[in-house]
Every structure is written in structure tokens, then in C-alpha cells.
Amino acid sequence: MAISLSKVSFAYEKSRKTGPLYVLKDIDLTIDTEKNDFITIIGHTGSGKSTLVQLFNGLLTPSSGEVNVFNKIISSKKKTKLKEIRKRVGLVFQFPEYQLFEETVLKDVMFGPKNYGLDDIENRAKRALQSVGISEELFNESPFSLSGGQMRRVAIAGILASSPDVLIFDEPTVGLDPKGKKELLDLLEKLNKVDNKTIIFITHDMEVVAKAATRVLVLDNGNISFDGTKDELFRNEKIVSDNSLILPSTIRILKDIKEKLNLDIDIYKYNVNDAYLELERALGGQK
């Protein structure tokens, strides 16, 4: 099963003076959901990241070209029933806490599955809440009485409750403190590895890419300028400098050490432990 885009372009309102203003141009892309990838999408503000992911679940219709989501076609020429698509491809916006609206936490999470006509909605909602770490005593509280991090997790549970195969997050860690960010990332990695969900994650944060990504897409001015693993990305100096990407901190640190101490080091390590082990190896061990 897959989400695939063929020759997809997208323009928001057409300007009479200048013609259509394309946000995305001629995109070909396949996301094979059997692979259970954790895909991060990076690129500068205005490069088309948010527009791209809204095509994945039919929130936007391409201006030209075709989007195929689990064998349902979305194009400007054809009307498609989007409910099934949206049930399977859930999208969480940047400040998902603004999407909450019900009287209680539990009711809020039940809204999605109810809307999609699923059965056993209360149990679905409870399971979703438990999986994001919201304990039972909060189920009947007002969602607005919760902390920012909790509200964000309730909003994610609201999407999870419909058991989508693909979860899309548009910069979900913005504004969270480091601990909140780590907890959210751990949760998404669990959904990816244990529950086999494909995760698509828009971010500016290279530490997220370093920690979690199995595939990285770089968007540049409406085009996909890179599609590969994080290792292929960071080892490709041209792509890194062309897109003015900032390297993850462990790579930057090892690069400094390599240059200043003139050591033979593989700098492409993605966490402190691996970076230390490489350093130990390069320095010939302990005193």
C-alpha cells in the first residue's frame, strides 16, 4: 500500500497579473507504507512542506497531476470520497491543542472514530489515550484544564483513535520544552516501531532528524531536492550547503574535534554515546 504523487503541482490562489503562483512543482513521490518509515520533511519556511502533506490526505487537491492514496485517486478532474482516506491518513497540525473542542477529554478523542462510523468508539478512545500516556483520572476532565503538553497528547490521541496507518505531524514539537519534546518523540518512535505506523514529520529541528528519521525529504522552493536516508543526506556536503542545512550537534562536535586535533574520525554519529565510542576508538582508548 502506498501514497504516491505523480507530476503533482499545486498553486494557491491564482494571481491575474502573474499567473498561478506555484507552491509545489511537478512532484513525483512514493511513500510505501509497508516499510514503516519515519519520514522527516525539512526545508525553509515557504518551501512547500505543509502544502505537500495536506495533499497526502486530501485536505488539498492538486492543481495538476494525481495523488493516489491507498488506490483512491485525488485529482482536480475527479471527485473522490475523502472520508476513507482521512481515516487512514491522520494529520496533526502545529498547535494541535487548538483543535480540541469537547467538554471532556474522552469525548474529544471519541469524536474522530464516531465521525468515521467506527464501532466500539469508547474503548478505542480509551486505548488511544492510554497509548499517549494520559491517565484515566483525566478522561472526564475538560481538555482545556490540562497543561500544554497534555493537550497536545490528547489531540494526538484523537487522531490515533481512528487507527490510521499513516500519521502526519506538522512541526509538533514547536514550543515544547526539551523534556516535552523528548517525550513526544519517544511516543512517535513507539507508534512507528511497535505499532507499525508510518510517521511523516515536518520539522526544522535537525536533532529530530538525527534521532528518529529513516528517510528524509528536503523541499526547496516547491521541489524535492533530496530523498534518502539521514546518513546519505548529511554525508552529502553539496546538498547540505546548497540547502544551508545545519548539521546535527553530534556531527558538528565531531567535525570540530576532527579538524582541531587532526584525527581520523567518522563524524557521522547521531547520538552522544556513538559519538563518544568513535572518539575513544580514534584516540586509541583510555589512558
Binding site: 586535533l261 582508548g285 583510555q286
Partner: peptide, 17 residues
């Protein structure tokens, strides 16, 4: 902690970094 070879030099570079 691990008393690594050339630890003083490494520490200095890490602070600079």
C-alpha cells in the same frame, strides 16, 4: 569519567565548540 587519551585537548575543543 573514562580517563580518555588526550582528554585535556578534547575537553578544550569541546568547550570551544
Amino acid at each position: 569519567k573514562n580517563n580518555l587519551n588526550r582528554k585535556e585537548e578534547v575537553e578544550k575543543v569541546l568547550w570551544q565548540s
